[in-house]
């Protein structure tokens, strides 16, 4: 949230839509950020709870019955497109995957936009930086004269990275972006996963190690694993993508023996 953001407390409910007393339905209290990049407030909404309901259902309920102009991104509502990322009680989550059963009865649920990106309005924020980073990555470049035969065992590793749904929860939680705001120098976990998918592709012939070290700033990652903790696709971002890439960068730039051997034996 920007500097001059002022948090006011407001309360709204749909009144007639709530079940009357004596009804068994539970009522959940939501505190949703409403505002834009300049100003914002936390608005309280009361939402009746249905079985199996997720936070996104509650947001839709609010849109339909209380505030039709509540801005939120969503598409598939099945944790496959990665559109509905937000911070639910301070944790980066997909709203379509966060069930209300996970909260205790009577607990207030705070829903805020992703903190690491500028707010556009309410729960939608400007994630365009990520698309700019993606453009700079050298695309898949097949080795020459390949027969396109690949073993399943060789692609298992890469297929894990290709599960990424680009929800940007890892970009949002990564402290290098969130706290230190090193966006110009650092690509973020999502794009290390993408580069890992390309670098470890059995038939890819391009080299991205120099870019990884210099332009993408893999050295800024201090492997504190928050990206892995929040990944809704359970990709082991740190262990399987970032650390192996760091080791490959070490091979090229930091391992003294390898550097000397290369100088001696590899012809330029």
């Amino acid at each position: 949230m920007p500097a001059e953001c002022t948090i006011k407390k407001e309360s709204m409910d749909a009144g007639h839509d709530l079940p009357g007393e004596g009804h068994k339905a539970r009522i959940a209290t939501f505190k949703v950020f409403r505002g834009d990049k300049n100003t914002g407030s936390e608005v309280e909404y009361k939402v009746p709870v249905e079985e199996g309901m997720v936070v996104l259902d509650a947001i839709h309920y609010i849109q339909r019955n209380i505030s039709p102009d509540l801005a939120v991104r969503w598409n598939c509502k099945a944790a496959k497109c990665g559109s509905c990322s937000a911070e639910v009680n301070g944790k980066p989550r997909l709203m379509c995957k966060t069930r209300l059963d996970d909260f205790s009865s009577g607990e207030e649920i705070k829903v805020y936009p992703m903190k690491s990106f500028p707010v556009i309005k309410d729960l939608a924020c400007d994630v365009s930086w990520n698309f700019e980073v993606n453009k700079k990555i050298t695309p898949f470049t097949p080795k020459e004269n390949t027969s396109w035969i690949m073993n399943q065992r060789d692609i298992d590793r890469v297929q894990e990275f290709r599960k990424c749904i680009e929800c940007f929860a890892c970009q949002n939680v990564c402290h290098v972006i969130r706290d230190h705001d090193l966006k110009p120098k650092f690509a973020g976990p999502r794009f290390f996963v993408r580069v890992a998918g390309l670098e470890m592709h059995p038939l890819d012939g391009a080299d991205r190690l120099e870019a990884l070290k210099n332009d993408m700033g893999i050295g800024f990652c201090n492997i504190t694993k928050c990206c892995t903790e929040v990944c809704p696709e359970d990709i082991h971002i740190t262990d399987n993508a970032i650390i192996p890439l760091k080791e490959r960068v070490v091979d090229r730039y930091f391992d003294p023996v390898k550097i000397i051997l290369r100088k001696l034996f590899v012809k330029r």
Binding site: G90, K91, P92, H175, R178, D179, F220, C221
Partner: peptide, 16 residues
């Protein structure tokens, strides 16, 4: 960071 989604406060950072 101290934990995921918890602010570190103001400081210089060069990572590794």
């Amino acid at each position: 960071p101290p934990a995921c989604g918890v602010s570190e406060g103001c400081k210089k950072y060069t990572g590794e």
